[in-house]
């Protein structure tokens, strides 16, 4: 991959939701390039389109206008099935509410993305344990999510996001449900992943978290208000 080729490139990205009567414009023409290895914080007031942008970047949703290139490939109009496969291989999601499956143990949650990986991964058991080890949750492998604290659940979720070795981690307010001390630990973990080379994009309301990022993109009313680099 050429060094100047961005991992993510939005050009004139628009997203509108047709509601009864009027259409809600969640994104109105976003142009942005994010390069490999960057650590970007997306900030802005509530309703400004941060989550929408993350969902589209993560191929959970598609644009209603404009263009989205992922690793140089136009993915604006690819099929549902291809989007599922790209999500599986290239993108790791981390959610504010952890989103672990409650009936599955920590290690089973980490195994999930490998279940959907094609071709099948041979050493899936070791890989899951290895991912848990990398977030310091090896000893809790057999625990159910309800038996874990919020911070521990988020660590398991991070291990799950990492297990298919994605190029990109998307985190929507990963510390939003955690106390500040635990939040800081989670941030340290995410930063260390970025140091190892993973591109990290996170949404946050927390200025302290924003300060830790190398670059801050501020959204307002679906448009980029500011794009500042440390």
């Amino acid at each position: 991959m050429a060094k100047d080729l961005p991992v993510i490139r939005f050009r004139g990205a628009c997203k509108s939701y047709p509601m009864a009567g009027e259409t809600v414009q969640a994104l109105r023409g976003v142009d942005v390039d994010i390069h490999a290895g960057e650590f970007v914080a997306i900030m802005g007031p509530s309703g400004s389109g941060k989550s929408t942008l993350m969902h589209i970047a993560g191929l959970l949703d598609s644009l209603s206008g404009g263009r989205y290139e992922l690793e140089g490939e136009d993915v604006s109009a690819i099929s549902r099935r291809n989007r599922a496969d790209i999500r599986n291989r290239k993108i790791g999601f981390i959610f504010q509410s952890f989103n672990l499956l409650s009936r599955c143990s920590a290690v089973e949650n980490v195994e999930l993305p490998m279940l959907y990986h094609r071709p099948a991964i041979a050493d899936w058991r070791e890989r899951a344990m290895q991912a848990l080890r990398s977030v310091g949750m090896e000893s809790r492998a057999a625990h159910l999510p309800t038996q874990l604290s919020g911070g521990q659940q988020q660590r398991v979720a991070i291990a799950r996001a990492l297990v298919n070795r994605p190029a990109l981690i998307l985190a929507d307010e990963p510390t939003g449900n955690l106390d500040s001390r635990t939040g800081r630990e989670i941030m340290e973990l995410l930063e260390s992943l970025n140091t190892e080379g993973i591109t990290l994009i996170l949404v946050t309301h927390d200025p302290e978290v924003g300060q830790a990022a190398h670059r801050r993109i501020r959204l307002r009313d679906g448009m980029i208000e500011a794009d500042e680099v440390n």
């Binding site: 599922a84 496969d85 999500r87 990986h117």
Partner: peptide, 9 residues
């Protein structure tokens, strides 16, 4: 969640 993790239809 499964779909976010890459489950196809």
């Amino acid at each position: 969640i499964r779909m976010a993790l890459g489950a196809r239809e």
